[in-house]
């Protein structure tokens, strides 16, 4: 695996001179921190600690944290426990399907360094090699208090704008993709178009594209065009006519 050789640049947000816009940004950040929909990807024992955190003993809903069902609806991806190589593919797909801003929390030692699966051939050891992890909650397993403490920490970081792992994923996509390709092989691809998304939302950085994304484009199976055609008419001979 290559070492990190891409300089981590400071986040350069657009300078918003309009004071109202700054107030608005502040409001949105505040609401983001007070309303966190989480998708929990529960592979291991860490999942056991989540129900008490959600139910009457600790009641996460006090902080505006709610469980959600699909990646589209969620803001936080909660990875509780070890990630095998097979499941990591699904985790990455799930992460890429979430709407930004999105945050990844790694719970338990397994996500930090592989934990008790350190010697396993089939387990990804360090989650942050593949996804931008905003927060680790270490422990084997961390108690609900620790989970809540971590959530509060994340809330503060979102509020202050420090939790920007999702921007890092767009900016240094090539690096993340390289690590993913290293693990899954050269033909690794997801249906989500991260580069297109990054350029659409002005989130691309110098590390968005590189040798690994070029490899991706070489190996990628092209998807059928999806845009709407408003053109009326066209040729009479169309596909599908033959098997009528």
């Amino acid at each position: 695996m290559k070492e990190i050789d891409i300089p981590i640049e400071a986040s350069v947000d657009r300078n918003r001179t309009n004071p109202l816009a700054r107030v608005f940004d502040e409001l949105v950040r505040f609401c983001r921190s007070r309303s966190m929909f989480m998708l929990h990807y529960c592979t291991g024992c860490g999942a056991i600690e989540l129900p008490p955190a959600m139910t009457s003993r600790f009641d996460m809903e006090r902080l505006g944290i709610q469980p959600m069902v699909t990646p589209r609806q969620a803001d936080i991806l909660l990875i509780t426990g070890y990630v095998s190589i097979k499941t990591l593919k699904r985790v990455i797909l799930t992460y890429e399907q979430m709407g930004s801003p999105k945050y990844v929390i790694g719970i338990c030692s397994c996500t930090v360094n592989g934990g008790m699966y350190w010697q396993s051939y089939a387990t990804a050891k360090q989650l942050d090699q593949y996804l931008p992890v905003d927060l680790y909650i270490a422990g084997c397993m961390p108690r609900p208090e620790a989970v809540l403490e971590g959530m509060r920490k994340l809330m503060d970081r979102i509020r202050s704008g420090e939790a920007d792992g999702w921007k890092d994923y767009y900016r240094r996509y090539d690096w993340y993709l390289g690590n993913q390709q290293h693990l899954f092989g050269d033909d690794w691809q997801t249906p989500a178009d991260v580069i297109g998304e990054a350029s659409h939302y002005d989130l691309a950085g110098p590390g968005t594209e590189g040798e690994h994304t070029r490899l991706l484009q070489q190996c990628q199976k092209p998807l059928e065009p999806q845009q709407t055609f408003f053109q009326i008419g066209g040729s009479l001979e169309v596909k599908g006519e033959s098997h009528e």
């Binding site: 409001l27 949105v28 505040f30 609401c31 983001r32 007070r34 309303s35 505006g64 589209r72 803001d75 399907q97 709407g99 930004s100 801003p101 998304e197 939302y201 989130l203």
Partner: peptide, 14 residues
Amino acid sequence: LYDIVKLYGKKTQI
């Protein structure tokens, strides 16, 4: 209200 403001304020809208 927090939920609604947050959802409308998401960066990527799929």
